[in-house]
Each structure stands twice: as C-alpha cells, then as structure tokens.
C-alpha cells in the first residue's frame, strides 16, 4: 500500500496541477471580483462592468486571435506595437480628409497585410515566429514614431468617436457587440469548421498533420491573417476610445493578450487552446487592470502582478503536462 502511494505521488501532483490549471481562469476571476468588490466602493456596479468590458475590447479581440496563433505552436509578439501603428494610420488617414469608413477599412486591410506578412515570413522562411514578430514589433514601433514625429494625432470625427464609444446598438455598447460577434464566429470556426479542427492537429503534431494531407503552411498563414484582422478591429476600437492615434499607446497589450491565453490553460507547445477559456483569461486581466486602477496601484506594480500571474499559469501548465506528453 505504501509502495503504491509512493508510485502514485508523481501522478497526484500532476492531477492536482491539472485541476488547478483548469480552474485557474474561473477561480481567479471569482477571487479577483470578490477582492476588488470588498476593497473598492466603485468596483461592483453595472456602470463599472460595462466600462470594464468596453475598455478591454481590444485586449479581448487580440487575445482571441493570439489563441489561434498559440494553438498552432506559434506566437505573435508584435500585436501591441502594430495596434499603436494602426491607430496612427487610422488617425492620419482621417486627418488627411478620408471619410471614416474608408479609413477604418484601410486600417483593417493594413492589419491583415501585416499579419499575413508575419505568417508568410514564419512559414515560408521557416523562421521561428518569436523572432519574426519581434522584428515586426520593432519595425511597427519605429514606423509609428516616424509617421507622427512622436506626437499623437487627434481624431476629430464626432461620428466615428460616437459610433465606437458612446452610442449603443440595441442597448449594447458597440465594442461589446463586436466582441460578442467575433467570439461567436471564432468559437464556431474552431469547433465546427475543417480549418479550425485542423489547427489542433497542426499544433499537436505538425508532421502527422502534413502527412494527413493538411495544408499546414496555408493554414498557418491563414491563422496569422485572422490574427491581423482581429488586431485591426482592435486597433480601430482602441483609437476611438483614446480619441487619437498615438505611438506607444498599447504598452502592455502583447503581455496581456499572451497572459490571457496562458491563464486560459493553453499549451505554449501548441495543440491545446480554447476560446471560452481565453475569454475568461482576458476578463481576468481586464478585472485586474480595472481594479488596480480603482485601488490606485501604480502602473509599474501592475506589471509585476501580471508577470507573477503568467508565471503561475505557466508553471501549472508544465506541472500538469509533465510526463503526460
């Protein structure tokens, strides 16, 4: 009996880690909401929750895209810098006199082009996406500063600002509406289309996927293109919220998006990820951001808290899958 207990010990740690990993987004969200509700008088009310979600619409969209990228065992480190660059492009296009729908379309197309470029270089060049998107991050940051001379470009178009920030559609704020539609579309795509199902196989075993006749390279490039689309829409929402296109406007977006996916229990080695759990992870980060602002936690400390949560999630994920793969 004793020997049995010894032998099972490794399994017990793994099972405990697996349980914790699976519960982390739920438990974390509940604990954080409970804590901030007690700690701040301004946290637990409908007005704040609505703000919380609309404020984090960009994060949620980018995190959902990042889920696909991480599912196929890639990563995109350029999203924060690209969102800033796109917001600059959007603001300058409007400042140059383009009507807002044209400027928005232009921005989203530029985003998809950048995403596709990331994918093409990664896949065709067989270069780790880690490096490719690190390069893209530097380029996007540089371009944003050059385009603007390091000064943010104000957006003056009232219709645009209203549409994306103040006006409600059927009583639902537009950013929330966009998040819901994107989320539903991605859940269906991942679970109910051949493309989505193939992504799991590609992430879990790329060579087996290739030998099963799956167009691995085309699918990966498509993932980066979809990521670009979500980054583009996220950038439009971000610009409308800030009322300007500012270089360096999303300093923690990349970190937050990756954190959301990891808190959602995805494997950084690919093959396991879930839109629902990423959404919970993103909400957890959103609550954290919102609550820490309400409690006047300074920005630098916020980074440390988020860093610790990422490390916790990664350690749990490793413990949970150690020996299991």
């Amino acid at each position: 009996m004793n020997a049995d207990a010894d032998a099972m010990d490794g399994g017990r740690t793994r099972r405990a880690a697996r349980l914790l990993r699976d519960l982390l987004p739920y438990l974390g969200l509940i604990l954080l909401v409970a804590y901030f509700s007690l700690a701040s008088d301004f946290f637990f009310n409908a007005r704040n929750f609505e703000r919380l979600v609309t404020d984090s619409a960009t994060l949620i969209l980018v995190a959902l895209g990042m889920t696909l990228v991480i599912l196929v065992a890639e990563i995109d480190l350029s999203v924060g810098a690209v969102v800033a660059l796109l917001s600059v492009i959007l603001a300058q296009a409007m400042a140059a006199g383009l009507p807002w729908p044209v400027a928005v379309l232009l921005t989203v197309l530029a985003a998809m082009a950048i995403g596709t470029l990331n994918g093409v270089i990664t896949v065709i060049g067989q270069i780790p996406s880690f490096i490719v998107t690190l390069g893209m991050m530097a380029i996007a940051t540089g371009l944003a500063f050059i385009f603007t001379g390091a000064i943010s470009v104000p957006i003056l178009d009232e219709t645009f600002l209203d549409l994306f920030y103040s006006v409600s559609l059927l009583g639902v704020p537009v950013p929330l509406m966009i998040v819901v539609v994107a989320f539903a579309a991605l859940v269906v795509m991942l679970g109910r289309t051949a493309f989505g199902r193939e992504l799991f196989a590609i992430g879990a075993n790329i060579e087996a996927a290739r030998l099963s006749g799956i167009a691995v390279r085309r699918n990966k490039i498509a993932v980066f293109a979809v990521m670009g689309l979500l980054v583009g829409v996220g950038a439009v929402l971000s610009a409308s919220r800030l009322g300007s296109g500012a270089p360096g406007s999303s300093p923690s977006l990349t970190l937050d998006a990756i954190a959301a996916v990891i808190i959602g229990g995805a494997s950084l080695f690919g093959g396991r990820a879930s839109m629902v759990r990423t959404l919970l992870g993103a909400l957890l980060i959103a609550v954290l951001n919102n609550g820490m602002v309400l409690l006047n936690v300074n920005v630098d400390s916020q980074f440390i808290v988020k860093g610790l949560i990422i490390l916790l999630a990664v350690v749990l994920e490793r413990l949970a899958s150690a020996g299991g793969r």
Binding site: F200, A208, S212, R325
Partner: peptide, 18 residues
Amino acid sequence: LGLVLGLSVADNIVLPGL
C-alpha cells in the same frame, strides 16, 4: 507520424478526410 496523440480516436480517424 501516424497519429496525433493529443486528439481523440474519432478526430484521428476523420483527420485526413475532414
């Protein structure tokens, strides 16, 4: 090369003809 071990039996069977 033959199987994607992380997936279910059904997902593996239908994979090439998805």
